[in-house]
């Protein structure tokens, strides 16, 4: 492996880069509308309900959720480091941080599944009450998008190893990755904490 693969990325056409950014912005707008609609639905259900079972997660489950929140925040930091190293044409460090981010993503999903398992076994299931339904629905949908994000990271890793034009690609996947972090923060505070 040489750094030559990263060296060519500065030649990438600024015009086509901007085009893909526009495409990604439209995608993020659409996904925003999706999550806004779901969170607004949650809001409607909660406001209109007589008895909302908030704060009924066990402290142990809650701490897993908190840890996951910090993990995903760290993954955004980890991702930004990837971009930094791509720009600096440092292939070794780029790969190290991509692998780490993938690892963090997989760990996040693993801990989410553990959280689900623990909660379901303690009576906080998808069909025990509306709060449960909302939690599983939102965290599930978010998790599905994290899977897509991890697949994108594998794809990015493959591209870095085999071709050029990385900065743009890394930034595009980054928009999506950071968006997912943001969505999780919203879900965490509005559904789990509040």
């Amino acid at each position: 492996m040489t750094n030559k693969l990263l060296a060519d990325s500065h030649l990438h056409n600024k015009e086509t880069q901007f085009t893909s950014v526009i495409g990604m912005i439209i995608l993020i707008s659409s996904l925003t509308m999706l999550f806004v609609a779901l969170i607004a639905s949650y809001g409607v259900l909660r406001v209109r309900s007589v008895n909302w079972h908030s704060h009924s997660m066990s402290y142990y489950s809650l701490s897993i959720a908190c840890f996951n929140t910090m993990l995903i925040l760290f993954s955004s930091y980890s991702y930004s480091t990837i971009v930094k190293h791509v720009k600096a044409l440092n292939l070794t460090k780029t790969l190290y941080w991509i692998n780490s981010t993938i690892g963090i993503g997989i760990l996040f999903l693993f801990l989410q599944s553990t959280l689900w398992y623990l909660l379901t076994n303690s009576g906080y299931s998808i069909s025990s009450h509306q709060a449960g339904s909302v939690f599983y629905m939102l965290s599930g949908l978010h998790g599905l998008h994290i899977i897509i994000g991890i697949i994108s990271l594998f794809w990015l890793r493959g591209k870095i190893l085999t071709s050029d034009n990385h900065v743009n690609r890394a930034q595009l996947v980054g928009i999506f990755w950071h968006f997912l972090t943001f969505i999780w923060i919203v879900i965490f505070f509005s559904v789990i904490i509040y």
Binding site: V50, N51, S127, S133, Y136
Partner: peptide, 17 residues
């Protein structure tokens, strides 16, 4: 999945839909 986001009234087993 057994949720009842959109079900209310006498037939709802999870209130609040």
């Amino acid at each position: 999945a057994g949720t009842q986001f959109l079900v209310a009234g006498q037939k709802a087993t999870i209130p609040g839909g």
